[in-house]
Write a protein that binds this DNA or RNA. Structure first.
Length: 192
DNA sequence: AGCACGATTAACT
DNA sequence: GTTAATCGTGCTC
């Protein structure tokens, strides 16, 4: 049986295309042989130094270095003093861009997710970027790891195809101090 | 060395 | 609707 894991060429494409096509894909975390997985239902694109919402606006720094690297790797960063965010690096080596995985729908490893997120109702287990990172135990140690093989306990598999009728496109969120037009770019993709 | 801010969340009123 | 929590990062001095 051929691997279901999305290969490097999938990520080595325009970021908006990758963000759109990641909807329906399966984000998989494997811990000690146990799978925790969910279908990706919300993404956002962050594209290049000219995108003033993208961390790469500051240029290549220790923090943003991964985004400048080869596609198909994880860019994990820390914010608000307590939250981890998972992104997937896109486009050619040298161009800084990534897709933020904003939400997933739990499919496997529900018991583990419940143990980590059980204080909240199931609908709120993985409906935000910091929430899914917590549910899947993703932190700084995953920054820069390959997502196109099983070596690192984190990868993305081809999943369900989502039709355009089931996709809502809108502006990215949380960009309070980002100037226009970047603040309103319709670079957020949601599976209804 | 110090500072302002943040691709958020949960718990409030 | 508002706001505290909490600290790495990048910028200024």
């Amino acid at each position: 049986m051929p691997s279901k894991i999305l290969p490097v060429p999938f990520y080595n494409r325009p970021t908006l295309t990758v963000a759109r096509e990641l909807l329906g894909a399966t984000l998989v975390r494997e811990e000690q042989g146990v799978r925790i997985a969910g279908m990706i239902v919300e993404t956002e694109a962050y594209i290049g130094e000219s995108d003033l919402a993208c961390h790469a606006k500051a240029g290549k720094t220790p923090r943003t270095e991964v985004m400048y690297g080869s596609p198909g790797r994880a860019y994990v960063y820390f914010t608000y003093g307590m939250h981890w965010m998972l992104n997937v690096v896109t486009e050619m080596d040298g161009f800084p861009a990534a897709v933020l995985i904003r939400a997933i729908r739990p499919v496997e490893g529900i018991a583990i997710i419940a143990a980590r997120r059980g204080k909240q109702p199931p609908a709120k287990w993985t409906d935000g970027p910091a929430k899914l990172a917590q549910a899947l135990a993703i932190d700084k140690s995953f920054n820069g790891v390959d997502l196109y093989n099983r070596n690192n306990g984190l990868w993305i598999e081809k999943g369900k195809t989502i039709t355009d009728e089931s996709v809502t496109i809108g502006p990215r969120v949380g960009l309070y101090t980002v100037p226009e037009p970047w603040k309103s770019k319709p670079w957020r993709f949601i599976e209804k």
